[in-house]
């Protein structure tokens, strides 16, 4: 009895710790999710379709590209390959949380499914607070993000035309989130070389390959730099 009561308290503490951390993502996902819902609507796909896509994909840029695939000539193989390339950066997220997500039991599949840019950023930057179970903390971050994304999708698809105030620029909330989490990583001296490498490789790739093809060359470059600097970074 007592242990289940303790578990309940620990779980509650995990929700209380996770929710404030997800508030910027709440704003970002509701807005982006709505944008996705609206675009699906204007492409002729109602709320069931929009929700289906958000439920099984749970990805921002991936789903926006998905809309263009739905409005192009029918080519599922190309759709699959393009989706892999657009989301290739997620491979690095998995590598980074292999240890963190070890031994999480049945929640692990859901955490891997929901490893978005924002979920990865929070999970890799924040420490689960004292007295909370790390499983619960990671689970709630992922689950709340999923909930925000689905809510935004439905709202946008059903009621996108109701919004009358100007929300231009609100999507900057996610840029700001990444900047803040970059600064949090920066606090540890041993992270600085890697952080600067990330920026420089992405800028070099942007200059060389343009905004459409930025991700994969940046990842390859980053891999070369990080592996080449392994001795020097000596971790």
């Amino acid at each position: 009895m007592e242990s289940s009561e303790q578990q309940r308290i620990s779980r509650l503490a995990a929700v209380k710790a996770a929710f404030p951390a997800t508030v910027p993502v709440l704003t970002g996902y509701i807005c982006l999710g709505m944008a996705f819902g609206i675009l699906m609507q204007t492409s002729g796909y109602g709320v069931g379709w929009a929700l289906l896509m958000s439920v099984i994909c749970f990805a921002g840029s991936g789903q926006f590209v998905g809309i263009t695939l739905l409005t192009a000539a029918f080519d599922p193989i190309q759709a699959f390959l393009i989706s892999v390339m657009i989301n290739a950066r997620h491979i690095f997220y998995g590598l980074s949380v292999l240890e963190k997500y070890r031994g999480l039991g049945r929640e692990r599949a859901f955490l891997i499914f929901g490893l978005t840019d924002e979920t990865f950023s929070l999970v890799s930057s924040l420490k689960p607070p004292e007295g909370t179970n790390r499983h619960d903390f990671y689970f709630w971050i992922t689950f709340l993000h999923y909930l925000y994304w689905l809510t935004g999708t439905v709202l946008g698809n059903l009621a996108g035309n109701i919004i009358t105030f100007d929300t231009t620029g609100i999507d900057f909330v996610l840029t700001a989130l990444f900047v803040v989490l970059f600064l949090e990583q920066w606090k540890k001296k041993e992270n600085r070389a890697a952080g600067v490498s990330g920026i420089l490789c992405a800028v070099a790739s942007l200059a060389g390959f343009g905004p459409e093809n930025l991700v994969i060359p940046a990842m390859v470059l980053l891999l070369i730099v990080l592996l080449g600097g392994r001795r020097r970074l000596c971790i």
């Binding site: 980074s96 990444f178 992270n191 490498s197 990330g198 920026i199 990080l226």
Partner: peptide, 10 residues
């Protein structure tokens, strides 16, 4: 990678 990817995401 976490620090590097945060830079890349910005």
């Amino acid at each position: 990678l976490p620090a590097a990817m945060m830079g890349l995401l910005v």
